[in-house]
Design a protein around this nucleic acid. Sequence first.
DNA 1: AGCTGTGAAACATTTCACAGCT
DNA 2: AGCTGTGAAATGTTTCACAGCT
Lengths: 221, 221
Amino acid sequence: MNPSRPRIPEATVARLAVYLRVLTGLADGGRAGVSSGELAGAAGVNPAGLRKDLSHLGPCGVRGVGYDVLGLRDRIARVLGVERSRPCVLVGLGNLGSALADYAGFGSRGFEFVGLFDSAPERIGQVIGGRPVRPVTELDRVVAETRATIGVIATPAEVAQSVCDRLTAAGVRSILNFAPVTLTAPAGVDVRQVDLSVELQVLAFLDTQRDAPVPALGGMA
Amino acid sequence: MNPSRPRIPEATVARLAVYLRVLTGLADGGRAGVSSGELAGAAGVNPAGLRKDLSHLGPCGVRGVGYDVLGLRDRIARVLGVERSRPCVLVGLGNLGSALADYAGFGSRGFEFVGLFDSAPERIGQVIGGRPVRPVTELDRVVAETRATIGVIATPAEVAQSVCDRLTAAGVRSILNFAPVTLTAPAGVDVRQVDLSVELQVLAFLDTQRDAPVPALGGMA
DNA sequence: AGCTGTGAAACATTTCACAGCT
DNA sequence: AGCTGTGAAATGTTTCACAGCT
């Protein structure tokens, strides 16, 4: 209703990022318009939910017609803050960290990795995704110089907390953690946890439940 | 209330996987008992929520005392189906796929990668996480032979849908997709999407909102 | 006293149904 | 007719408060 800042639900923010990806694809393909039904299909959500999500941005479409692909794309990009480039640092360049550093999708979405850090001597100096890997000892300095506020942790679990401590001490206020440990950070620092094995475990659980929906109350009689 | 199968909420299942990880750590450290407060702290949730989660498994603890670490660990492991080994296949062994194949955590949680597949000739034959990489042409045969029901897609976006089609055709019924595209699969097949850039984008959005909570209604006057 | 287990309340999210514009 | 925008209902999730056991 109020288009300025009635706070957008977090679940909606996550989906907006998906819509943005789909719209970018449509725009690149030359499409001019799209309906909520088609967009919802391509994003894997239901049409009413999509319209509800977009309603948080104020009116975006034309009734009876649909949405303008470029207009909607830019609107979402602006809300998500994609136009300003955000300096991020990434710590840990094993396979996962390398995959992240290498992922071209970040650059086009407003993220710039201004520092890649690792502690293994053999990785220092390697260039990944166009950036050199530096020793973690330089972390504090680089964060200060670039005013990076976002940090990504892709280290082994054992060192993740100490990396988190260094990041927060250096001034990072938002952390995305891929290491399978729960981090503790000072109040005011937002830590988000992504645990890849948890996702697989949920999938497996649902897989099992489907095959054995209600296996009788008594167990294996 | 009913300890057999009143269906466990999905959000709870995800957290159970986290509790299991923490409990395994405590057990390895020789701890015998733990309270909901301490366990909740280590898992990053609130104590009441943790107890509510555990209530879905039926009584697990001792009032006035707490939980038995080993007993609770095993209970959760049984509910999540960790004891039976699940055959999984993984397609795409770039950095991300390699990180997944290499992650020791899977083995100890009931997952066994019975097949690693890639289409790049230079990757065929490489051994990652103790398993050789095979050509995707063998996918159908391996899925059939091993009766794998879980598939993980870590390919580039362009080929993810065709990989999904092959997996489902071969009999896979649960798919975890890391490629940044929305997959369509036949009814009865469960597809879960993990989009790493979405996580970062949500984090960035919250980061921005914090710095500019309510920037006046008129824009930049 | 201490801590678990749980109904009930508060909150968030999703879905529905339809008014309203083109 | 077609499709968006949105209040209201339905559903799901988190938090609270406290009864009940040790």
